[in-house]
Design a protein around this nucleic acid. Structure first.
Lengths: 212, 212
DNA sequence: GTCTATAGCTTGATAGAC
DNA sequence: GTCTATCAAGCTATAGAC
């Protein structure tokens, strides 16, 4: 039935997401994915054109949802400022906080996706193309808002600032555990609530210093 | 002769470094590496125990050099401040500027290494363990210096701030080209001189805002 | 939609001559 | 130190029965 088809397809996507996030696109075989999905190998090629197509669908599946939530968060902030512009910190919070909310509400569904994004963003092979395709239309909207909040900021400063934000954000949601080791346990990379509270403050200060 | 042995070994390491940086550990075969190194496949296993051992040696080869240069840069800054503590911006500059200097002096030798580090740092599989092993002894030294510059800063704020720094820095040196697309060409990810001038200012502002 | 079976190729790694 | 030859395993992908 149609329902079963959808279920199998989703199970494949779930399994692929988790394994791709852990080992990268080339680090995982279709066989491993289908073993985790508890389905036959050939079904991968019934539901998807190729391994690469499966990878793209994993990336795509949650991108639209995420873009939508972030856009709504930005619009909500702008609505609270009908006369003036929102602050830099408020805008960055609208960009980062939705990720935490998704994790809080549907942890296992989003955890691996964010790890995957971190790897893609930092890969010379995928980073430029895929991140641009899936996320940059929304990012341009946020850059516009930031430009309004920092009217005297030069474009080069603005874009480099966003670039720093992007690096900090994706590493944070990669949850590699490195900071746990470095801090001797005082900080936990899984404690995303405590970092999402700090990130907008940290990054807003950077934007403001660079843009004046 | 001994000289030739060294040369072959280095050629293998060079080829491996470039390919690992582009496609990741699992994205490259030993055969591809040896083809680029213009040597026989079996020589990989004469010089290295396994593919994984080759990967580790690639990571290790430049880590010591880099740690040494960064330490010297930090000591030079501290020497300029015999009475007081260096500023946060000066300390961060000592951490980031050496990477740019290495690229300026020996571009092709370091370019791929930095891309590799970016991927390793953001990988759940390697990030926690490898970065800790190769770099954290030096990073602890820098965190000490930062703590002295920000005596009222709580440890959690200090470590999260370093974490943001780490994400921004590694993404920058990954040179994925994403920011080129996003900015419509006004910013180039290969123009590292312009970013190294901005990064310490941006990040220092973040540390200072978070730590008071 | 799901299965079996398999083609055709590449992989990491080694044995052994020179 | 460098070569040829090869193994056993795993890989992506497809054909065809049901």
């Amino acid at each position: 039935m149609k329902n079963d088809k959808q279920k199998t397809r989703d199970r494949i996507l779930d399994a692929a997401e988790e394994l791709f996030a852990q080992k990268g696109h080339e680090g995982v075989s279709v066989r491993q994915i289908m073993a985790k999905a508890e389905a036959d190998v050939s079904l991968a090629y019934y539901h998807f054109k190729s391994k690469r197509d499966l990878f793209d669908q994993v990336m795509l599946r949650r991108a639209d949802i995420l873009n939508d939530i972030r856009l709504k968060a930005l619009e909500a902030v702008e609505k609270r400022h009908p006369a003036d512009a929102p602050t830099v910190e408020e805008i960055i919070d609208a960009f980062t906080h939705p990720l935490l909310d998704l994790l809080a509400r549907e942890h296992d569904e989003w955890k691996y996706y964010f790890r995957l994004i971190a790897q893609v963003n930092n890969s010379p092979e995928w980073g430029g193309e895929l991140m641009t395709r899936y996320f940059d239309p929304l990012v341009e909207r946020f850059v516009q808002a930031l430009r309004k909040a920092l009217p005297d900021c030069e474009d080069a400063d603005l874009f480099w600032s966003y670039h720093f934000l992007s690096g900090a954000l994706t590493l944070t949601f990669a949850e590699t555990g490195r900071i746990d080791n470095l801090s001797g346990g005082t900080v936990k990379s899984s404690d995303l609530a405590s970092v999402v509270e700090r990130m907008p403050k940290f990054l807003a200060a950077g934007f403001e210093r660079l843009c004046k």
